[in-house]
Design a protein around this nucleic acid. Structure first.
Length: 165
DNA sequence: CGTCCTTTGAAGGAG
DNA sequence: CTCCTTCAAAGGACG
């Protein structure tokens, strides 16, 4: 199995572009938003270089985690569900998506599982050194909970539901 | 303008 | 190995 890939593997993604020429959505530039018009200052000074930054990780463009099967399913069906419902709240839509997910047949679910496999495999080939922890912002405090953790505790409360009944 | 709420899956981290 | 925690999408609601 390990020999599946040609020995000519080229780990260094010097080019952020996918071999197909299609950039991956996982690549998010650190600065995507164009700041609003600024009075005074030097508007002309900063000539907008259309090129330069676009999808290269010159710096560290917060590479997102690869989407799992359900997330991929959500991306496709969400628009449809929203079109049929007057709701737009993701929280409610996601509940419907989750329900519909159970309605899928094995082959249908398998389709998304395999698709997610490719996403992960592609992600790993584009960023072999990337780690899921790189996106971690919330960290579990090693010691006892500090008083500043009031809001964060809500997360822990949900976590309790998972392992605690 | 940031966080919540909500879903499942992945994966790291701790034990 | 098992169990726990965080992030992925994502859009109104809320502070």
């Amino acid at each position: 199995m390990s020999s599946r890939f040609s020995p000519h593997v080229v780990p260094p993604p010097a080019h952020g572009l996918h071999p197909s020429g299609i950039p991956h959505p996982t690549i998010v530039s650190p600065i995507v938003k164009q700041e609003p018009p600024q009075p005074s200052s030097s508007p002309a000074g900063t000539s907008k270089s259309p090129v330069a930054v676009k999808k290269e990780e010159e710096k560290k463009p917060h590479i997102k985690k690869p989407l799992n099967a359900f997330m991929l399913y959500m991306k496709e069906m969400r628009a449809k569900v929203v079109a049929e419902c007057t709701l737009k709240e993701s929280a409610a839509i996601n509940q419907i998506l989750g329900r519909r997910w159970h309605s899928l047949s094995r082959e249908e679910q398998a389709k998304y599982y395999e698709l997610a496999r490719k996403e992960r495999q592609l992600h790993s080939q584009l960023y072999p050194t990337w780690s899921a922890r790189d996106n971690y912002v919330r960290v579990t405090p090693p010691g006892p909970p500090a008083p500043s953790w009031g809001s964060k505790l809500k997360r822990l409360e949900r976590a309790m539901d998972h392992g605690r009944v």
